[in-house]
Amino acid sequence: MARFVAARLAHAIVVCFLVTTVAFLLLHAAPGDPFSFDHPRISADIRDLWRAEFGYDRPLLEQYARYLGSVARGKLGFSHSLHIPVGEALAGAIPRTLGLMGLALALSFPFGIWLGVFEARRRASASARVANAASLVMASLPNFWIALMLLLGFAYWLPLFPAGGIVDVLMHDYMSPGQALADRARHLVLPLVALTLVATAVVARFQRAALQDTLPADFVRTARAKGVDDRAVIGRHALRNALLPMITLGGLAFPALLSGAVFVEKIFTWPGMGLLVTNAIGARDYPLVLAAVQLGAFMVAAGSLLADVAYGMADPRIRVR
C-alpha cells in the first residue's frame, strides 16, 4: 500500500510540475508582456528599465528556473489589477470555492447514489422512468443555465433568496451571531443548489449504470437464490461492488465541479476563485489568471490522488497492479 501511495504521490508531483511548466510557456508564448501596453508618454527606455527591474530581460531558461523556484516557495506573482500579491488574493477566495464545492460534493453523492439505486431497482416502474428521464435532462443542462433560472425564479420572481454575494454587505456586520449565520446560509442556497443539481444527476446516472452491470452477476443471483431479500441483495451485495466506480467518479467530479463553480460564482457573484478569475480575465491580469488556473490544476491533482488512494484501500486488486 505504501508503495502504491508513493507512486501516486510521485505522479501528482509530476503533474504539478507539468502544469507549472505549461503555465510558464503559455505566459511567454503569449503576445507582449506586462509592459508592452499602449501609452504615448512611456518611452522605450522606461519600458526596458521596468523589464530589467522585473527580470523580463533575462534568458528564458533563467526566468523559468526562477519561476519554478518561486512557485515551489508558494509565490505566485503579483496581481496587476488588485495591487496585492496573487497569493493574498487567492488566500481569501480559495476557502469560499472549496467550501461551496465540498458542500456540493457532500450533498450530491449520497443523493445521487440513492437516486441511482432507485432507478436501477425499479427499472420497469413508471416512477423510475420519470426519475431516469429527469436525471438525463438534469445532467444535460449546463449549470450556468440552471444558475440563471434559479436566479430568475427564486431571487426575482419569488424573492426568497438574495441574488448574489456571500453575505448582506450592508447589514452583516450589525447582525447577531445567529442572524449572521442565517444570512450566510441564505446566500449559500442558490449557488449550492445550482452546483448540486447537475452533480446529483451525473452521479445517479453513473450509479445506475454501475448497478445495472452488477445486478446480472452470478453472486447476485446466488444471493437471490439463497432467499436473501431484495433490500439486502442491493445493499449488501450489489451496491458494495457498484460503489467502486463512485470513488473514481469522486476524483473526476472535482474538475467538473471546479469549472462549474467558475460559472456559478460569476452568476451569483460568489467571491471565490471563479469570480476572481473572470474579473482577472476582464482586467487582463495574467499573473492572477495563471496562478488561479495553476492552483485549480494542483487541486484537481490532489483530488485524483485522494480518489486513487481511496480506491486502492477499497479494492485490493488495484494495489497489486
Binding site: 503559455l26 474538475p255 467558475v262 480575465i281 489568471v289 484537481v300
Partner: peptide, 21 residues
C-alpha cells in the same frame, strides 16, 4: 497521455484563451 489528461481542460482553455484574447 496521462500527463495531458491530468491537466484540467477548462482551466487550460481559460488560460490559453485569456492570454490570446
Amino acid at each position: 497521455l496521462d500527463a495531458m489528461l491530468s491537466i484540467p481542460r477548462v482551466l487550460l482553455l481559460i488560460a490559453m484563451l485569456a492570454l490570446w484574447n
